[in-house]
Amino acid sequence: MARWGMVIDLDKCNGCQACEVACRSENNIAVGGPQAASEHRTISWMQVRAEVEGEWPDIRSRFVPQPCMHCDRPPCTLVCPVQATSIDREGIVNQIYARCIGCRYCANACPYTVKFFNWHKPDHPASTEPGLNPDVSVRPVGVIEKCTFCSHRLQKAREMARVETRPLREQDFTTACADSCPTGAIVFGNLDDPTHRVAELSRDPRAFRLQEGLGTEPKVYYLSRRD
């Protein structure tokens, strides 16, 4: 069984944010606007954060693109009272919008702050509706949403593989962010399949994960020459 994961090479990321916009386009993420931004309520499943340290002129800096970590031991699923979020058998931490009651326990439990609550009715002006991706549902107000590792693509990819009576190949299923990265910094695949690039990269000496001490066992690995 697959164990989907991601490796992000921080030495390659140049902070262009193509992944953020590709994710918004792929996953029908609504525009929050200035109001949401000022309340820190902008929804962005993928966020390029910048780490800037030091004092002028000796600055150390890097970009850290941050999607949901899809933890193997996710804290968010433990607190959900209605099992609207759970870890899938292939390691994807899902969010079932129709089940979510909007209690926001999971958003508070997440140490990576990558679960987003729809405080307002998602704003998709009528003229933009033809541009929505029909493969992803539009969320209603009052539910949590999050990065799904583009699991809707997995649904289609798996079906296509069966149509063509072949196993699922590495290039069949990838996320919109990995697809969009012009420097190839984001790699997606099956961590348990040694033929997949992520399996090799996740064992790279440069590899680390965010807040490893919490024991959440994230499946998003980062590569960096710096500690």
């Binding site: 759970s86 899938d88 058998r89 292939e90 994807i92 899902n94 079932i96 919008y97 129709a98 493969d135 992803v136 549902s137 799904t148 699991s151 809707h152 997995l154 649904q155």
Partner: peptide, 10 residues
Amino acid sequence: VPTNCIACHR
């Protein structure tokens, strides 16, 4: 057949 949530939910 798989009954995991994201086999059908999206």
